[in-house]
Design a protein around this nucleic acid. Structure first.
Lengths: 241, 241
DNA sequence: ACTTATTTGTTCGTATGTATG
DNA sequence: TCATACATACGAACAAATAAG
């Protein structure tokens, strides 16, 4: 019976495509409710198992979001799938364990340096104040021996977010997230040179305030240097251990 | 309450995590076979349906690959999930239809200009010859009225691939792929200014051969200008239509 | 606090399609 | 052609989470 249609395509793929089509045709937005599983079964002429498997694949891509006992909704279209995929790739590490980390740093540095001129153009007084407040906060927390990773992340998000390029913001954020999961597994500490880190952020903020693209470029480049050194050191340890 | 919302108390999430762990612990590589569904059910103490739904989520992330009637294997860890997610986001277009396209161009330009110095350092004689051969081929095809999009894509892949940063290569390639799917839906033609396009590529190749970073930067920037104009034109058409 | 209705989560049984030998 | 192993698909029943009365 189920062999009737088209032959090649699998049931769950058909169903997934038609659900995506439905979302587009109905002009639904993230958070909008989708038909229930049972309604989808009827509308698409598929069994509940097939519908469920299709919905799960869309859920993995954050195209839909399933809430137990509540319903199914249009997803946030985040980069959660990219994060999960890259994290797994980093943990699998078929060849050089540290190559993935260097690639993540490359991308983040690429984004921030490449966006330098636009950052200087776009960020206004309130952005600058927030940026400098984050550096102060970083210094305070460091003085109290607390973690600065969250503040660090906010700082870099604040550099890119105002530009309005969601793809760049989210991709950079995704790289940061993956780095945070993979680095500890490879004993790449992020607890060293923290004084240098704070100084580097202060230089970046100063360059933005001075509207000096060349200084910004140098400051960002300097900011990433310690991290690269830590990776190189960890690689050297791994090579001889 | 066993756990907070979105928690791992769900069976298929447990199963998915344990399958990922299995792949890592067993040091499996892409293409290696995984246990059959039945074996996974026994080993993980879960039903067929739960295992299947878990496997489907991993399949969507290209962490595993399922071949009908054959078996389940470790996936290629490609960026297919990112491509599908971004494509859908582009087709959904909640606000400005053309914003997504501009973001994709931003990223590609960012990558290539940011990698400029490294491209000049890394590409050797054979790379340069291949690059120039592609430009010639582009010109020939253009003279015969044929499509140059495939050659165009090869050219840009050849710029980034030799650097060895898979993340950059694949992300850039993913942006290209998404652009190719989304742009036609928005009537953003890529068939204009093709003579300019060929010239731009020739300038890029020449800058690499001359090992002139500044010229490379200018050439890449100039290369993307026509595409941005086409988007702006399409937006203007849409605004008055 | 309790019940009821709705919706997704989980399990099992069975039959079919696909690839290999 | 047949046999085997595997994934695909359907359907029914029950469990768990959530919301509303």
């Amino acid at each position: 019976m189920p062999a009737a249609s088209g032959g090649r395509s699998l049931r769950r793929h058909e169903v997934a495509e038609r659900i995506k089509r439905y979302i587009i045709d109905e002009r639904l937005r993230p958070g909008d409710p989708l038909p229930t599983e049972l309604e989808l079964c009827e509308a698409l002429g598929a069994s509940r198992s097939s519908v469920r498997e299709a919905v799960k694949t869309l859920d993995a891509l954050d195209i839909v979001e399933v809430r137990h006992g509540h319903g199914t909704y249009v997803g946030r279209l985040s980069m959660s799938a990219l994060v999960e995929g890259l994290t797994f790739r980093g943990l699998l590490s078929p060849e050089d364990d540290f190559k993935v980390l260097e690639e993540l740093l490359d991308v983040r540095e690429l984004m921030e340096r490449g966006m330098g001129p636009r950052i200087i153009d776009t960020l206004h007084a309130d952005h600058l104040s927030a940026l400098e407040a984050l550096v102060d906060q970083m210094e305070e927390r460091l003085g109290r021996g607390e973690d600065i990773v969250a503040v660090d992340r906010s700082f870099h998000a604040l550099l890119l977010d105002p530009l309005g390029n969601d793809l760049v913001s989210q991709f950079s954020s995704a790289c940061w997230e993956v780095y945070g999961v993979v680095a500890p597994h490879l004993q790449v500490s992020s607890k060293q040179d923290e004084a240098d880190t704070v100084a580097a952020h202060r230089d970046i903020a100063a360059a933005v305030r001075a509207a000096d693209p060349a200084a910004f470029d140098r400051a960002v480049q300097a900011h990433y240097r310690p991290a690269r050194r830590r990776i190189a050191a960890a690689r050297a340890r791994g090579a001889q251990g």
